[in-house]
Design a protein around this nucleic acid. Structure first.
Lengths: 342, 342
DNA sequence: GTTTACATGAGGTACGTACATCAATTACGG
DNA sequence: CCGTAATTGATGTACGTACCTCATGTAAAC
């Protein structure tokens, strides 16, 4: 009835505690035959290591680092808060988290930070960055040092990262398209797709997903070529005025990046905010306000609290070489409207 | 730097380990002045008890029970699976979960089960049931026995439950209405609101929320009086045919309960499934299929995995008399479409 | 036969906490 | 000043695991 312990395993396998310990912790000096005996005893009893007791005995401390882009975006700020909160609630689990901010759009800065991190010998690193050869290389070195690595928000698929904590951007774009197509009441018209920058893989994938669904299901709506704001208010204003002037049949705006501020401001200035369907990404204090006021119709979001906790859990699992509980770590694509605001 | 232990507290407070222990565990025999000294030392050091070590020493076992309605609904089935999975992933945390199924719609059956549970002296109970005087009373007795109680899915607000794990039904209904209003392309028409039964508080609240938003924002759409299916396929078929015949301007269906099967079947029979906007509740294998095929346009859901894990976490927190991490336990109202299916 | 390497056992200490026992100190009423 | 009760200290054991040392066994190599 009670949970079996190493003692039970030892007596069932007919060996001493020390041998069970050697097998469990992969230490040398045990004949293969004995290893098998111990392992079948483990299976027979359904023994599972008591991680909390093990961590206690080990005085284990998980030291994690999170590399985030150092930009003023509210999304990154809320993510940072969530990480801080999550690590605070995890002090009991012996997890400490250091947050490192690096200049975004500079692959060398990220690689430098990752390189610097190696010296601190953390147990795991979560990285939110664009995939570049430099970053891939730095991750490779971290892995060589035996450090757990997870990609956060943006996947780094061709790197050696252990796991990706985030959502499928293409599906997020498809979801945005579905809402756009269904929220727009007219069957024809133009849709503006606007992003901070279209060099990031996420933006590209979102656009891809968006176009897929728009073409397939809402062929009457015409998605204009993506425009880039580069986070410049003047540029945004110019673009918006230009687009609105040229296309008198503009019916919707899809803001692919997390920065909605300047875009909203520009549309508000020309008094078009309430008659356009506006779909954006990420829930921030500002986008929340805009949802409530009806300026934004829906936001495609990922729960930052979930992201933060998930990243820490996955890193810990990778450190302990334990299977990740996939169902719990699958980040959902949240659709947030003014009525289901969390 | 390192986490303070009872030893540190003892030396800072200038008392022995035994005294700190007495204070921490609320045992008698310590002068009030000394208690204060110890407590200020705890505050000063920021000491937090190492729960895993404490549980180890205590040989603590959390024995929880979950009372669910014994119906054949897929939603309850998936919830049960999620609970089983969650408890399996929590064996490491010394949590064991017993699931009890009781006849739904029978307050006496629930009360009987709760009464029977008292004998087993569990540490906590999660209850999914309608609020009735009998249930309220039974909860009261559980609480008197010092058992932690959380309401699951449906709140039991005027009972003595410690916490509610679930979503605000009224907000869920509002969300459904927003999607209905925006998905329907015509500005006038009839909307059918259909439920298994309208006696449950959840259904009433959903309907309330639904009407609020429909009236406020989509006044052209007329929501018909709620109809009850009582889970009877023949009855459903009759209702659906009747409604479709009378109202040739039927544009949408809001299925307020979790059972979509018969309703979908009936609409499919009369060939109306693809030209009606269909909004339902809860993600089940069947509703998932219907989303993919386009028969259902959106589903308002709650993540059952999250619900299950949340219930267990909250019960444990209540047992340890520790604060609940609110942000993590807030269940979101998920909007699920074919494009963001989890 | 002796050396050597390897395999295993036996036992201890530690982690941070709980809990029990008993001795020692203090305070107070008579 | 004594007796008694309340308070506090000192110490030990336990929880399940990790990790260390030392002893002993065995078998192959020399």
């Amino acid at each position: 009835m009670a949970r079996p312990t190493v003692h039970d395993v030892a007596s069932v396998a007919g060996v001493s505690l020390a041998t069970v310990d050697r097998v469990l912790n992969g230490r040398a000096g045990v004949r293969e035959e004995t290893v098998n005996r111990v392992q079948s005893a483990i299976r027979e009893l359904g023994y599972v290591r008591d991680t909390s007791a093990a961590n206690l005995a080990r005085k284990r401390e998980y030291r994690f680092a999170v590399v985030l882009p150092q930009d003023s975006s509210q999304f990154v700020a809320t993510l940072k808060d969530a990480l801080t909160e999550a690590s605070a609630s995890h002090i009991a689990d012996r997890i400490s988290v250091k947050i490192k901010a690096v200049l975004p759009e500079d692959p060398h800065a990220v690689a430098r930070e990752l390189h610097a991190l190696r010296a601190a010998k953390p147990d795991g690193v979560a990285i939110m960055a664009q995939e570049t050869p430099q970053v891939r290389d730095a991750i490779s070195r971290l892995k060589a040092d035996g450090i757990a690595v997870v990609a956060l928000i943006s996947d780094l698929p061709s790197s050696e990262r252990d796991f990706f904590v985030g959502v499928n951007s293409e599906a997020a774009g498809r979801t945005a398209a579905l809402l756009m197509g269904r929220f727009v009441r007219r069957s024809t018209g133009k849709v503006l797709a606007i992003a901070n920058s279209m060099v990031s893989r996420d933006s590209i994938d979102r656009r891809l997903g968006f176009d897929t669904v728009m073409l397939r299901e809402f062929a009457g709506l015409d998605v204009l070529p993506s425009v880039e704001t580069h986070n410049d208010p003047d540029r945004v204003r110019a673009i918006v005025r230009h687009v609105a002037a040229i296309h008198d049949d503009l019916v919707g705006v899809y803001s692919m990046g997390s920065g909605n501020r300047y875009i909203l401001d520009a549309f508000r200035e020309i008094g078009r905010l309430h008659d356009l369907v506006y779909i954006g990404h990420e829930l921030t204090p500002r986008s929340r306000e805009a949802l409530v006021s009806g300026e934004i119709d829906a936001v495609i979001a990922q729960n930052v609290g979930h992201l933060a906790r998930s990243a820490l859990r996955v890193l810990r699992a990778k450190c302990d070489d334990v299977a990740v509980f996939e169902a719990q770590e699958r980040i959902r694509i949240d659709i947030v409207t003014r009525e289901n605001l969390p």
